[in-house]
Design a protein around this nucleic acid. Structure first.
Length: 508
DNA sequence: TTCCGACAGTGGGGTCGCAAT
DNA sequence: ATTGCGACCCCACTATCGGAA
């Protein structure tokens, strides 16, 4: 298959908003694929290279040779070119990678260059990724979509599921949980408070739910098969070598084969959690920080698959396998007041929040279903918009990402920047702020400079999860997960929160 | 007919490893 | 030693489609 065919499909997929039409376009292309190309084409249709890392990013594809007049590249040639680039390492590798880019892109037409650049930077933006590709695979292979989805979750890969799908429904069904092969982790939706979460899981108020402490570390999935231990992250990257303490704990457990789900984090001597940044900075041996695993689910133990068992059974098996010190704290209750108290204790102990879990639900690998609901405390501040950036994609033409400042009398401008945010804005707000910030611009708005400096006059209410230390911002702190709640026209900039209030607000 | 679950998109801060300077 | 880039940890939120209710 020519790359040009695939690029034409991507263009057609991007041109329609109908998901059914996207699936139809993907399916049509997929039906014309040769067996040898299947994995590459499935991956490319979903907007991803086969290589997890190529060493190429936005910079590596920002300066390209003149495009070719006629298409000639095949999909497999492109795959081989990226495979070669991914293999480059050591002195001279950047020049070699550069040469490879010139060779590949020089053979691509203008449309192909644009697609190749997008796929390298993860910006294909055709409104179709894994989930939509899975629908097309199911359609062409004439197998149930649910079977494709389940195989993809259990194999940790849509490409692997697609291969099986074309071998038939039996091959697809044969893909099960395999100790040593990562599966997509189950995710949680979120709720504003414990009562809301509780009501969602137990509408009649009598159902018993589990409430886990939500630890602010790195999600880990731990596989043990005899002496072999594998530790992977949420995105299924192998980090076994970075976490020898976790490997040791896994080897100390009494079962021989199992798959555990949990969180790894750094603790201080008195057992309080360290900042997420300290857990994240943890490399191998030399950092002096010890990372401890805390498990909250068990998916397999000694030949017994638990994925489809209700949460209550999985937790019983977890409690039997893992000693308390390596489990997350948990309360099982139907009483909202008890749940609330548990959440308050958990936060007071320095943790991120809680996760409420339906005890009758199976482990829904890869899904952000409603069986797990997280609740985290939210802080808010009134800050001043210092500048704004032009948006991209569907926000093209709108002033989007805003720079946030707190009042600071020691600063020459009177404000200190604490971060940026683009979250929480409706289309209506985007339209409003584009007009408003055009008026507040310190110099005539020019689309060529993507940051627009403003007179510091507009106050905005910002929600965030906490402060983190920063080397980027002059105040030494930055907001974590900042998002807009609303613009405040009832407050002037002199009434905005000060940097001292920001620090006091979050108990720093 | 309305509601709501699932998806994709739009980006945020921090930290590390690596190659080039 | 420093710098810049790529990769990957953590992630919130809105718009939209299309099936469920």
């Amino acid at each position: 298959m020519l790359l040009a065919d695939l690029v034409a499909t991507s263009t057609a997929v991007a041109a329609t908003r109908s998901r059914k039409a996207k699936v139809a376009a993907l399916a049509e292309t997929l039906s014309r694929v040769e067996p040898a190309e299947l994995e590459v084409v499935v991956s490319y249709l979903g907007g991803a290279l086969r290589q997890r890392r190529t060493g190429l990013g936005w910079r590596g594809v920002s300066d390209l040779p003149a495009p070719a007049a006629e298409p000639s590249l095949t999909v497999l040639e492109v795959h081989e070119a990226f495979e070669a680039m991914a293999g480059l390492a050591g002195p001279g590798s950047q020049q070699a990678r550069r040469d490879a880019v010139v060779a590949l892109f020089g053979r691509a037409t203008a449309a192909e260059q644009a697609w190749l650049r997008a796929v390298v930077t993860g910006n294909v933006r055709q409104g179709a990724l894994d989930a939509v590709t899975q629908e097309a695979v199911a359609q062409v292979a004439a197998v149930p979509l649910a079977a494709v989805r389940r195989a993809a979750m259990l194999a940790g890969s849509t490409v692997a599921a697609a291969g099986a799908a074309f071998d038939g429904e039996e091959a697809l069904a044969a893909i099960g949980l395999e100790v040593g092969r990562p599966i997509m982790p189950m995710l949680a939706s979120s709720a504003p408070d414990v009562t809301t979460a509780m009501t969602g899981l137990s509408p009649d108020g009598t159902t018993v739910v589990a409430i886990d402490a939500k630890l602010d570390g790195i999600r880990i999935q731990v596989h043990r098969d005899g002496d072999e231990v594998l530790v992977v992250t949420r995105s299924l990257d192998d980090i076994t070598g970075r976490l020898p303490e976790v490997v040791e704990v896994a080897r100390s457990l009494s079962a021989d084969r199992f798959v555990l789900d949990g969180e790894a984090l750094a603790l201080t001597d008195d057992g309080r959690p360290m900042a997420f940044q300290d857990t994240a900075s943890r490399t191998a041996q030399d950092s002096g920080v010890t990372v401890t695993p805390h498990f909250f689910d068990l998916l397999h133990v000694d030949g017994r698959d638990l994925l489809d068992s209700p949460g209550r059974e999985r937790l019983a098996a977890l409690d039997a396998l893992v000693p308390e010190q390596h489990r997350v704290r948990r309360l099982v209750t139907s009483d909202p007041a008890a749940a609330d108290a548990f959440a308050a204790e958990t936060v007071a102990a320095g943790h991120e929040g809680v996760v409420l879990k339906d005890l009758s639900a199976p482990y829904a690998a890869g899904r952000r279903g409603s069986a797990w609901v997280k609740v985290k405390p939210v802080h808010t501040l009134d800050l001043v918009v210092l500048a704004v950036e032009w948006g991209s994609g569907r926000r093209e033409g709108w002033l989007s990402n805003i720079h946030l400042g707190a009042r600071d009398d020691s600063s020459p401008t009177g404000f200190v920047m604490l971060g940026k945010t683009f979250k929480g804005m409706t289309d209506e707000m985007l339209a409003w702020q584009t007009e408003r910030f055009t008026e507040l611009a310190v110099s005539p708005v020019d689309r060529s400079s993507y940051v627009v400096q403003l007179r510091p006059e507009q106050v905005v209410e910002i929600a965030f999860d906490g402060l983190q230390r920063s080397t980027r911002y002059p105040g030494g702190v930055a907001l974590r997960f900042a998002r807009v709640v609303r613009y405040r026209d009832d407050k002037g900039p002199h009434e905005a929160d000060t940097i001292e209030m920001v620090r006091a607000h979050t108990g720093e």
